[in-house]
Design a protein around this nucleic acid. Structure first.
Lengths: 328, 328
DNA sequence: TTGTGAAGATAAAACCTTTTAGCAAACATT
DNA sequence: AATGTTTGCTAAAAGGTTTTATCTTCACAA
């Protein structure tokens, strides 16, 4: 790369001091009593030569990078992709940029990434934490690094977080199947994970079926297994229990479920899934959705984080956002 | 945030010089003739106190950030999401990290982002360029910043790029509809854009229908319009031309097309789309796909960029990757 | 004894900013 | 005339690295 202009080049070429240029560039001309003439001269010149300050040097000096780190499990999941998009927009309005990384269920990689971001002086973290990240997040908190969790939180960690009303959403989704759709035997397909949001979703399901004195039928999927295994597992679950309704705990589980239903022509058509997906309205049977309020979640996450960065936070903020059942 | 240890803290605590510590940490102990004992002492201590070098300072000094910028139009598009994922993995193997940004069809935002990345001393750019980015990319090239384009390239720009065989893929997809599926009237739905990959896809379609002396039926969608308009437009296009087959130029167009077909019960079932999508095998009618080879594209992009960064590049590299028609 | 070379380390400059503390001149006040 | 205040600007330190050039010992050969 070609050598870039530095602030001292500007100063030299103009025959003035670096300090003066810096003050002007940072909008402190008035405050620091730089004359109008001087200010204009500098601004014009800077504009003319297209000088841009070196952000690294700036960050090094100020300790601020105006950048937030966003860590999600898997950016190709539409829920995360959409929320990432929204978060980026809101953050942008505050003059912050997002660097994003996808952890792909690899705890070590995740730890490394957090460390990396920390090393790059990121101003704050937005994390959808996986299990096993407790310590490393703990360490961030101990160093007073601003953190907001979303989608789930970690039990023994006192953090800011923004999550959805998983319990209630799941409850309502299940009741919808049982009452509106008149399903007789509703099962739940979830992942074999202790994550809090999954626990909430499970509880909601349980409460709904038990309330109606129905039998609880839960199938847990090991997340790391190949999709084909998942498809077979769901197929067996539906067939063996003669289900006529299923609640899927995530949209990717619903996808696998649909593949099973489709491929083996399973006689079942009362379906609800957590999270939306473009295809839910297009497939037969259509899948109703317990949709999380992505704009609100994103907004809250950013607000909380920025507040904390600016030291305006009044203790921990923990937000629970309602879901909406989208009927199909 | 708590104050972090610096290399000079380490040096002071150990009663040796900063230089020595730096050499050891950078694996130059041998080369610089630091004694084994000294080396071990430093390494052990660094490990014990968990010191990590400040990456900003490092980058500032060396001019390298070991980071690549990835700019795509819309990360929620599964094609981009998947390719981003792959690129990240490959880059990681070379010790590089990816910072990603989604441009959302906003040229100004895109320009700003490129500038931002440049200011942050990013080592190279990976861009799926939108129209109107020509000048800003031009500027990068002029400053000898390593750049690789993918998915499309820009006509009057001599750059590295990795694209798919759009023409051939489109040709084969169309022939597949006409010959295997015995479609009589095949139309094409594409976007109103001059992007090269779209032109290629169009040409492929044209060649296929003209070869069989069929009529060319092309509908162009304005990309910025609300999806509802697109759905209506596609509905009218299919109905008015009594199509029994459609080639969609992108997966999101196919999505809108499916919505139209579904909602208005259009009598058409011979469909092909560029790019895969999870739902194509799940909907009725199923959608065949002209699938781009994402792993190969990602691999090439990263290899080319890293080579260029390391100065090992032998001129421009322009790669065209074959597509595969996935029959459903 | 002198000179040479290697071994083992280091001081200081450089990368590019921001910011503190202070200087000189001009003006105002008694 | 002496003192204080404002105006307009700047030198230099600091932030945490890497790297160049140099320095001191000591061993050994001539």
């Amino acid at each position: 790369m070609k050598k870039r202009l530095s602030i001292s080049d500007i100063a030299k070429n103009l025959g003035i001091s670096v300090t003066t240029v810096s003050f002007i560039l940072n909008g402190k001309a008035k405050e620091k009593r730089i004359s109008e003439a001087q200010t204009k001269k500098v601004l014009d010149y800077v504009d003319k030569v297209g000088y841009k300050p070196n952000q690294l040097a700036k960050s090094l000096r100020t300790g601020k990078s105006k950048t937030l780190g966003l860590l999600v499990e898997d950016i190709s999941n539409s829920f995360f992709a959409n929320i990432a998009d929204q978060i980026e927009k809101f953050a942008y309005d505050f003059g912050y940029h997002i660097v994003y990384c996808s952890m792909n269920n690899d705890v070590n990689r995740a730890k490394e990434l957090i460390q990396l971001f920390y090393d790059r002086q990121i101003d704050g973290f937005i994390i959808a934490p996986t299990e096993g990240l407790t310590e490393v997040i703990q360490r961030l908190l101990k160093n007073n690094v601003p953190v907001v969790l979303f989608d789930r939180h970690l039990e023994d960690l006192d953090t800011n977080y923004v999550i959805s009303e998983n319990h209630k959403g799941s409850y309502e989704g299940t009741r919808f199947l049982l009452e509106e759709k008149k399903a007789a035997r509703v099962g739940m397909v979830t992942i074999d994970s202790n994550q809090l949001q999954m626990r909430g979703r499970m509880e909601g399901y349980k409460e709904a079926v038990c309330g109606l004195e129905k039998k609880m039928l839960v199938e847990k999927i090991v997340r790391e297994q190949p999709e084909e295994d998942t498809i077979q597992q769901i197929r067996a679950f539906i067939a063996e229990n003669q289900l006529d309704g299923v609640l899927f705990a995530t949209n990717y589980l619903a996808l696998s479920g649909l593949k099973a239903i489709k491929r083996y022509n399973l006689p079942i058509e009362k379906l609800v899934s957590f999270d939306e997906n473009a295809l839910f309205s297009l497939v037969e049977p259509a899948v109703s959705a317990i949709s999380q309020n992505i704009p609100v979640i994103a907004r809250q996450v950013v607000d909380i984080l920025i507040n904390e960065i600016n030291g305006k936070s009044d203790g921990l903020v923990q937000v629970v956002v309602p879901c909406e059942v989208i009927i199909r």
